[in-house]
Simulated assay, not measured.
Amino acid sequence: MAGILDTVDQRTQLVGQNRLEILMFRLSGRQKFAINVFKVQEVVQLPRMTLMPHRHNSVCGVINLRGQTLPVIDLSRAIGLRPLTPDENSTIIVTEYNRSVQAFLVGGVDRILNLNWDAVLPPPATAGRQHYLTAITKVDEELVEVIDVEKVLAEIVPYDTRISSERLSDPILERARGREVLCVDDSIVALAQLRDTLSQLGVVIHTASDGLKGLRQLQKWADEGLVLSEKLLMVFTDAEMPEMDGYRLTTEIRHDPRMSDLYVVLHTSLSGNFNKAMVQKVGCDNFLSKFQPEKLVDVIKERLLLDEPQEA
């Protein structure tokens, strides 16, 4: 499986076409799970692992991989399933989320599959491990569950959404009070982080759980005769979402004259350099990696400064 991602760089051409590739794997049972290939650095056999005292119960230990110390997370246990037993034959998936790298212990890797985002649906509103899913899809008549890794990581290392009092006292940020934003994301953790941070600025927050719902909300406001660039300070959109991804959402916004001048921020846990290139390709105004409250405030300030009259 070490060579399964050899051509991953070639797959970046899928982005912007409402397509994605998922890496499918199993945990402690027969059920298939998946994560986006773009989050994956490599798939390797578990190296020698060192146990850590006082570790989170979902963390098996740490490994040294090419000079980098990484936590190994039992993904099965983290989402409420039967724990895995690590041994010399175990497989790990090394991933990067929100500027951090970690290894997930899995029961075995299946394959990489190319999909349309419109074939990937939100999970049903049921209990149990659905709480740890962002989407579901079907492959060869089998259900595949896409894991909300951001939620898993947030439970192991909680995110801090506090803004310093010094930043909050900036008079420019006072102009944000009462302004409205639309936040589009399929992760409840990411939406909560946006809400917790923006509420400290007095911002009114609207949310949508995928790009299609976000687009329909914008169209509804436009059909009501609202001037969207006046109603909304900006739109935050995740990159990868079921039914319609953030790149396609941005493209749809730019092609509709009623909303084409909206300020759109790509807010994602995917690779920063890759997304900065995609920002230009699809027409976003800004890019922000997730779970950085201070930088989120910087983006708000940049947008507010655009409303200032320009000197002649």
Rank of each mutant, 00 (worst) to 15 (best):
K290W: 02
M278T: 14
K295G: 02
V299M: 07
N286T: 09
P293H: 08
K276Q: 14
N286A: 11
V282I: 09
L270W: 06
P257T: 09
I253M: 08
C284D: 07
I300F: 00
K295L: 04
L249I: 01
S271P: 10
H255T: 07
T268H: 02
D256L: 05
L288R: 03
D298S: 12
I300Q: 02
M278H: 12
N273C: 07
F287L: 02
S271H: 13
Y263I: 03
D256Q: 04
L288E: 01
N273L: 09
V297Y: 04
G272V: 15
I300H: 01
L296W: 14
I300D: 00
I253H: 05
E294D: 12
T268E: 02
N286C: 08
D261V: 11
K281P: 02
H267P: 07
D256W: 03
M278R: 14
K276H: 13
E294N: 13
L262G: 12
H267E: 06
N275P: 10
I300G: 00
K295E: 07
L249T: 01
C284W: 05
E302I: 05
T268N: 03
S260P: 03
R258W: 15
V282D: 01
K301F: 08
F274T: 11
I253A: 05
C284A: 14
S289D: 06
L270E: 10
S269M: 03
K276T: 12
L262F: 14
Q280W: 09
Q280Y: 12
M278W: 07
R258L: 15
T268G: 01
T251V: 15
S271G: 13
S269I: 06
T250W: 01
V279F: 04
Q280V: 12
P257K: 09
S271Q: 13
S289M: 10
H255N: 12
V282M: 02
T268A: 06
C284E: 08
F274C: 07
N286I: 08
A277H: 10
D261H: 13
M259F: 03
S289H: 05
L288M: 04
L288P: 02
Q292W: 06
H267A: 07
L296T: 14
I253Q: 05
L266C: 08
G283Y: 00
F274R: 08
L262N: 13
L266R: 00
F291G: 09
I300A: 01
F274S: 13
L296C: 12
D285T: 03
K281N: 04
K290Q: 04
S289L: 10
F287W: 00
Q280M: 10
L266V: 11
V264A: 06
L262M: 15
L249V: 00
L270D: 09
D285F: 04
A277I: 14
Y263K: 09
V279Q: 04
